[in-house]
């Protein structure tokens, strides 16, 4: 179980701080898959990476992260090593070149395990079983990464990241580089890790909300470094309350409707600069419901059980 409270991750630049993740709070329960969605630059990858590998230019500016009721020292690079891999891991966005190109994969896994002080032999059975789980033949262990296809490399990384049964697995844009049929297979595999009890909680980062409907238990929508709305998948799908989420939903193409029937609406405008962002609600410039109060920091509104939104215009049980 992961609890994040008021997490602030800023990028230090010469011009000032870029507030990529600003005061973000959420939690992921055991056995739950949290989908994290938002447009490019909204801070979703920063959040995912910051939880496991926080290093310059990304900086920690406050907040608390607890995993299984133990506080994570996310701003202490060395102390975090005790948690990485064993308690939480990531399937990175760059999974296709995450392996050392000049080492055979089997040798690579052995060396990584040894470096973590784990006897590779004790994990061999598990490794072979996991390879089967993601449909990779055993012989990949005797191959170099160049001999695998992109998808195979990604699945190899999936095996690697989950090898020590971490409590939390972060999957960062795993579907971006895949075609639709492989997307489905990979999504189901990742969901499978959770369903088989290999990992307890999962954060699935994507810009593709339709993927989340298929696999996520809950969905968190981020906008400009802040949380816009969190709710169960059903709640977000059938009853989005935050204006941004609503407009996002109208921007999705629907099956059966041809482009001749009407153009996709989209959201006019651009997200704000995160270097010295405006005060108050960050979506106000693009929001059709904008009012005076939007210049103040938006309140958190408990819409219904397990469904919250950060917006002035949302009322309880809307």
């Amino acid at each position: 179980m992961l609890e994040v409270e008021g997490l602030k991750l800023y990028y230090k630049t010469l011009k000032g701080h870029v507030k990529a993740v600003d005061d973000v709070s959420f939690d992921v329960n055991d056995g739950e898959l949290l989908g994290l969605a938002g447009e490019s630059g909204c801070g979703k990858s920063t959040l995912g990476n910051g939880l496991i590998l926080l290093k310059p230019p990304m900086n920690y500016f406050g907040g608390m992260v607890q995993l299984d009721h133990t506080q994570l020292p996310i701003d202490d690079f060395e102390r975090m090593n005790d948690f990485r891999f064993s308690k939480l891991s990531i399937i990175p966005q760059y999974a296709m070149d995450a392996l050392n190109p000049t080492r055979k994969i089997g040798v690579y896994i052995r060396e990584v395990l040894q470096s973590r002080g784990i006897d590779p032999e004790s994990i061999m059975d598990k490794l072979l079983e996991r390879l089967k789980f993601v449909n990779l033949p055993e012989r990949v262990l005797k191959m170099y990464p160049i001999e695998l296809s992109g998808g195979m490399k990604q699945r190899m990384v999936m095996v690697m990241s989950t090898l020590l049964n971490p409590s939390l697995l972060i999957a960062d844009e795993v579907t971006s580089a895949l075609d639709v049929s492989s997307q489905k297979a990979v999504c189901l595999m990742i969901k499978g890790f959770k369903d088989a009890g290999i990992v307890k909680s999962l954060i699935f980062i994507t810009h593709d909300i339709s993927v989340l409907y298929q696999i996520a238990d809950r969905i968190m929508i981020m906008y400009a470094g802040k949380v816009a709305e969190i709710g169960k998948t059903q709640q977000i799908a059938s009853n989005p309350v935050h204006p941004y989420t609503k407009m996002l939903m109208f921007s999705l193409p629907e099956v059966g409707i041809r482009y001749a029937h009407g153009i996709l609406s989209g959201i006019p405008g651009q997200p704000p600069q995160l270097l010295n962002p405006p005060t108050g609600c960050l979506f106000k410039e693009r929001c059709p419901l904008r009012g005076k109060e939007c210049d103040e920091e938006p309140p958190v509104v408990n819409v219904e059980e397990g469904h919250i939104a950060y917006c002035w215009k949302v009322t309880q049980n809307a």
């Binding site: 590998l53 090593n81 891999f85 392996l99 990584v112 990384v157 690697m160």
Partner: peptide
């Protein structure tokens, strides 16, 4: 990237 990934695995 492979170094970055090794870092997320917490190797020495």
């Amino acid at each position: 990237n492979y170094v970055r990934y090794l870092e997320t695995l917490g190797v020495k």
